[in-house]
């Protein structure tokens, strides 16, 4: 009962602020892939793993006053910033979650661009495949991003490091 809401609030409490909806989606997906018990269901979409359930849950948390959403007008698009409100903090004090401490992983994810996290989450989406096929699949599903070999190598390294932190 409200466990999944509480887990997301716990995430925001550790992240302090998350900038960008796309980045938020990819961060949660990557954490979930590495065993953090978020239960939102993800599917592959045009821009990589995406969860409608997560979008709606964030919307609920905003409407309830637990999460603050700030809309920033950029040159040709909007950018959204998310942070936990006082009400959110108060709720968390009454409601315990079984979310392990992910602060270090979250910090590392926050340092990366959403383009890079899109690559990492796409690679994790195909993690059942052998490494070479994962890279081929990334080029197949994301031809326009034109990810370089260096970026791929950096992503593998990042996944490996993050996995160690997760376990």
């Amino acid at each position: 009962m409200l466990d999944n809401h509480a887990k997301l609030m716990q995430f925001f409490s550790e992240a302090e602020e998350v900038t960008g909806r796309k980045k938020l989606q990819k961060m949660i997906y990557i954490l979930q892939s590495l065993g953090v018990p978020f239960e939102e269901k993800f599917q592959f979409h045009f821009y990589g793993p995406y969860s409608e359930e997560l979008s709606l849950r964030i919307e609920e948390l905003c409407n309830l006053g637990f999460i603050h959403e700030k809309k920033e007008v950029k040159s040709n698009y909007f950018q959204y910033h998310y942070s936990l409100t006082k009400d959110g903090t108060a709720f968390l004090q009454q409601f315990s979650t079984n979310l392990p401490d992910c602060t270090k992983m979250i910090t590392r994810l926050q340092e990366k661009s959403s383009r890079f996290l899109e690559l990492v989450s796409t690679m994790l989406y195909f993690r059942e495949l052998p490494k070479r096929e994962v890279e081929e699949k990334v080029h197949t599903v994301k031809p326009k991003q034109n990810y370089s070999e260096d970026e791929m190598a950096e992503a593998w390294q990042f996944i490996s490091e993050l996995s160690k932190q997760a376990h």
Partner: peptide, 8 residues
Amino acid sequence: PGEEEERL
């Protein structure tokens, strides 16, 4: 509406 490229 696909703001920030969440969905097409």
